[in-house]
C-alpha cells in the first residue's frame, strides 16, 4: 500500500502530462477553443434560466446565479465520473502495452475536470458580480469544499472505473444513473422546496446534495455553515476514496488482461 502510493508519487509527471493533454485536446479542434470552457456554463445557465423564469417561473431570486452555483460543481462531478468510468477501458491500448500505476488514468481525468471547473468559476464570479450578490468571508470556504468534493469524486471514479473493466454495462447504466442523480440533487430547485422528510433523506444518502447546498450557502446566500455538516461530508468523502482506492488496487493487476 505504502509502496504503491510512493510509486504513484513518482509518476506525478505522467499525471501532469495527461491532465495537460486532456485540456489541450478538449479545445484544440474547436474554433472558439478555450472560450468554450467559459461559454459552455453560460449557455447552460441561459437554458435553465429560460425554463425556470419564463416557461415555468419560480420565486427563486437571481435565478441565473442560483443555478450556476450548483450547475458548475455538478458538471465537474458528472464529467469526472463519466470520464473516469471510461478511463481504463478507453485506454486499453496503453494498459496492454505499457506498465504504469493504473490509478494515474482516473486521477488525471478528475484533475483535468477540476482545472476546467476552476476556470469556469471565473464565469461564476463574474455572474455574482453582475447580479450584485455580495460575497461574504464565508466564500473562503470554497477551496475546502472543492477539495472535499474532489476526494469524493475520485473515490467514486475509481470504483466505477474498476467495475467497467469487468462489466461494460456499467457505463451504459451510469449514463442513465447520472441523469437520475442529477434530478435527485437540488441543482435547479431548492432543497427546501422538497417534502421535509425527503430533504433530510437526501442529505443523508446523497453527498452531492450536501456539496451543492454547501456551494449555495457560502456563495449565493453568503452565510455560515454548520461545522458538523462539514465534518460529516468530509468523512464520507474520505471513506469513498479509501474504498475506491482499495477496490481499484485490488483489481488493477488484472486490468492488463481484462481490458
Amino acid at each position: 500500500m505504502r509502496e504503491r502510493i510512493l510509486e504513484l508519487v513518482k509518476y506525478r509527471e505522467l499525471v501532469r502530462n495527461l491532465v495537460i493533454r486532456d485540456i489541450k485536446l478538449r479545445y484544440r479542434n474547436s474554433v472558439l477553443g478555450f472560450v468554450w470552457c467559459l461559454g459552455n456554463p453560460l449557455l447552460m445557465m441561459a437554458v435553465f434560466t429560460v425554463v425556470f423564469t419564463i416557461l415555468m417561473p419560480t420565486d427563486i431570486p437571481k435565478y441565473p446565479v442560483f443555478i450556476l452555483c450548483a450547475l458548475l460543481p455538478w458538471n465537474y462531478f458528472n464529467t469526472s465520473i463519466m470520464g473516469a468510468i471510461d478511463s481504463i477501458v478507453g485506454n486499453a491500448h496503453l494498459i496492454k502495452k505499457v506498465y504504469f500505476p493504473r490509478e494515474v488514468l482516473p486521477l488525471s481525468i478528475v484533475l483535468a475536470n477540476l482545472v476546467n471547473f476552476l476556470l469556469a468559476l471565473i464565469v461564476l464570479f463574474a455572474m455574482l458580480f453582475a447580479f450584485r450578490v455580495r460575497l461574504t468571508p464565508w466564500a473562503l470556504y470554497l477551496p475546502l469544499i472543492i477539495l472535499i468534493q474532489t476526494i469524493f469524486t475520485l473515490g467514486l471514479g475509481l470504483i466505477f472505473a474498476t467495475l467497467n473493466v469487468f462489466y461494460r454495462d456499467t457505463k451504459i447504466i451510469m449514463e442513465v444513473g447520472m441523469l437520475a442523480w442529477f434530478f435527485l440533487t437540488p441543482v435547479f430547485y431548492r432543497i427546501e422546496d422538497l417534502v421535509p422528510q425527503y430533504a433530510r433523506l437526501m442529505y443523508w444518502v446523497n453527498p452531492m446534495a450536501s456539496f451543492i447546498s454547501w456551494y449555495r450557502i457560502v456563495l449565493y446566500h453568503g452565510i455560515s455553515m454548520e461545522p458538523g455538516f462539514i465534518f460529516r461530508t468530509f468523512v464520507t468523502s474520505v471513506i469513498a476514496l479509501i474504498v475506491g482506492y482499495l477496490v481499484f488496487t485490488r483489481y488493477s493487476s488484472v486490468f492488463g488482461e481484462e481490458v
Binding site: 513518482k10 509518476y11 509527471e13 505522467l14 501532469r16 502530462n17 495527461l18 493533454r21 496503453l94 505499457v98 504504469f100
Partner: peptide, 10 residues
C-alpha cells in the same frame, strides 16, 4: 514528452 512520462521519465 507524454510518452516519456508514460515510461516513467521526468
Amino acid at each position: 514528452y507524454l510518452n516519456g512520462s508514460i515510461l516513467g521519465l521526468s
